[in-house]
Simulated assay, not measured.
Amino acid sequence: MYVAVKGGERAIDNAHAWLAEERRGDTSIAELSVAQIREQLALAVNRVMAEGSLFDPDLAALAIKQSRGDLIEAIFLIRAYRTTLPRFGGSNPIETDAMACDRRVSATFKDAPGGQVLGPTFDYTHRLLDFKLAADGEVPEAQTATPPDTDTPHIMAFLDREDLIQAEKAGDETPPDLTRTPLELPADRALRLQSLARGDEGFILGMAYSTQRGYARNHAFVAELRIGTVAVEMDIPELGFAIDIGEMTVTECETVNQFKGSKTEPPQFTRGYGLVFGMSERKAISMALVDRALRWKELGEDDLGAPAQDEEFVLYHCDNIQATGFLEHIKLPHYVDFQSELELIRKLRREAQENITQEAAE
């Protein structure tokens, strides 16, 4: 930490007070409550939970309020708070087959078993500003849908039956936890997916878009996109069985990709996968596309030199907190460093001028 002049602490305290005043805004306007942010800015809350690696809508809403809507700052707050929490154990893998789906669509199977459920989506809106919202108008309530009583099977299972898609290899070992151990390369798929789930949505979206534009030859179909609630279970040693400890909303995306085969694999479809906290379908789809692009080596494909195929480039640069910290540190005082650079430039200019003068004299 640099201290440039006396009175630095007083200036920082004043900056904090000014920040609090700016955060509150016009006091004649009612203050936003955490509950209002949680309920009415749910997609922002979901992003903070996903990239902060902590499923807690109330804390995510509080972080958004504290950060004045700066989602990366809110994610930073959530990650910092997360490090203070005790860890009692790990939950079992969630069963997305048993998801109570609010939304479930497929771009590959029109008559998908269980049906298409559009759910709450912007897909079919006209993208016109609704001035009724500015006038605080009431929004009509949607008709209540009756959720299916049975589990909703994954559509990929129907391709599995015909042996048309690459089989997934389930690992017996518990994957490493990226929130507790630093990222090491080469990373296995489980670690890559963790990194992508925590990665910046904009960065992952840009990488995914690049694959669709030809940088990785990665044409994909959305086999299934589902959003809903899943139970979280934990094994209790004293009881000898698992119990529900809560539930959470997740978004899951599976893509099916063309694959002509390689020296090690036959022609078949391959998969991309994304799973994110909350309703975050843009992130889940992007994650699935990048996941597939990063699998080129294990599938025996050629390295096309595409950015989305470069594991080191993608995983080391997708984390917005790490990127923000490194980028924003350059605005802190660097007086000593700059003075040395300044003296070096002055010296080089003097030497260059002396050389010019000497050449002119000769």
Score class of each variant (00 low, 15 high):
D188V: 11
E265I: 01
L239K: 07
E201Y: 03
L185C: 02
R189H: 06
S262F: 03
T255R: 05
G206E: 13
A223Q: 04
S262Q: 05
K260T: 12
Q268D: 05
F203P: 07
Q212M: 14
M248Y: 03
K263F: 13
I227Y: 00
E247Y: 07
I204A: 10
T229N: 00
P267D: 06
D188T: 07
P186R: 02
Q268F: 02
L185E: 06
G206I: 08
V250H: 05
V250Q: 06
G261P: 05
A220W: 05
N218D: 06
M207Q: 14
T249E: 14
H219E: 14
P237G: 07
D244I: 12
R189K: 09
H219Y: 08
R213M: 12
G228D: 01
F241N: 05
G206S: 15
G240C: 05
Q194S: 03
P237L: 09
E252L: 15
T211D: 11
V232K: 03
S195N: 03
P186H: 03
A197Y: 04
P267F: 03
L191V: 15
P267C: 06
E238R: 11
Y209M: 15
A187I: 00
A216I: 09
Y209D: 15
K263M: 11
T211L: 09
I204Q: 06
F221V: 01
D235M: 10
I204R: 06
G214W: 12
E233Y: 09
A216V: 00
R213T: 11
D200F: 03
I227A: 00
L225D: 03
F203H: 08
R217A: 10
A216D: 06
E233M: 11
R198A: 02
L225T: 01
G199S: 12
L225R: 05
H219I: 10
F259M: 08
I243M: 14
E233L: 09
A242H: 13
F221Y: 07
